[in-house]
């Protein structure tokens, strides 16, 4: 038996919005640790890893590990029926083939439940080893989103370089080229407005902008994003979900043959 009660239901709504354009179908894994997911996009270029820790739920009951295959677009449709202030409860029976989403409004005078059929999906989990990254940059998530959007009006790919000077985003296209440099800046009013650059080694990698733009759908989940880069490794963009966990996106680079 599985029963997860999330008081801040809007978090789950935002999580689905952040993933549904990247991934069509995915297995949600539920264990004593929490509610998690690892899934790749159809071209196996990008991967999303989600963790909502059990402690973040008001009530968390998971008698045995359960894997639930769902179409993320359908889950998103159901969650759109929940109000932003609603409490969301996810329920499933062991070995059952359905999941129920229950929404309670704050006044507790409207309770809705939606039952959805589960899917049998092949699990394609990748082992992601802990790595020492050459550079780790934390910056406001809105700034990162703005940069990806602006550059994609000029080019399709972006070169992200980290040096002592800062993090540089460069693109080129038919109309010309563009460079945006963000320098380390810790003299800000609020810590989440800072740009913090941790660099062990200079690094420069090329990525497809359309995937980065898709990752920025997670912007509303966190005021900051942490971008980790190493030559010969996929980029990681991590959005922390306050008190609960994270959503991490991995993106394979473009490399000269």
């Amino acid at each position: 038996m599985l029963e997860l009660r999330l008081v801040q239901g809007s978090l789950l709504k935002k999580v689905l919005e952040a993933m549904k354009d990247l991934v069509t179908d995915a297995n949600f894994d539920c264990s004593a640790t929490g509610f998690s997911l690892q899934a790749m996009d159809s071209s196996h270029v990008a991967l999303v890893a989600l963790l909502l820790r059990s402690e973040g739920f008001e009530h968390y009951r998971c008698d045995r590990n359960i894997t639930m295959g769902m179409n993320l677009n359908n889950v998103s449709k159901l969650l759109k029926c929940a109000g932003n202030d609603d409490i969301i409860t996810i329920k499933a029976d062991d070995g059952g083939d359905t999941v129920t989403f229950m929404f309670e409004n704050p006044k507790q005078d409207k309770i809705s439940d939606f039952e959805m059929k589960l899917m049998d999906l092949d699990s394609e989990h990748l082992g992601i080893p802990d790595a020492e990254y050459h550079a780790i940059v934390r910056m406001p998530s809105l700034e990162f989103s703005r940069i990806c959007k602006d550059l994609s009006s000029i080019g399709d790919t972006v070169v992200i370089s980290v040096t002592k000077e800062g993090i540089k985003f460069s693109t080129r296209g038919d109309i010309g080229n563009a460079n945006i440099v963000c320098r380390q800046n810790t003299t800000v009013d609020k810590p989440e407005e800072a740009t913090v650059i941790q660099m062990n080694e200079a690094v420069s990698l090329t990525f497809a902008l359309r995937y980065l733009n898709s990752f920025t759908k997670a912007t509303s989940l966190s005021e900051t994003v942490t971008i980790s880069l190493s030559s010969e490794l996929p980029l990681v963009a991590e959005y922390k979900i306050a008190d609960m966990g994270y959503i991490k996106f991995y993106l394979a680079p473009k490399i000269e043959d």
Binding site: S43, H44, V45, L126, G127, T206, A252, K254
Partner: peptide, 14 residues
């Protein structure tokens, strides 16, 4: 032109 890599080049299936 740089070629788009896939994740399996970097991470092995579990």
């Amino acid at each position: 032109k740089p070629k788009q890599q896939v994740l399996s080049r970097f991470f092995a299936p579990k």
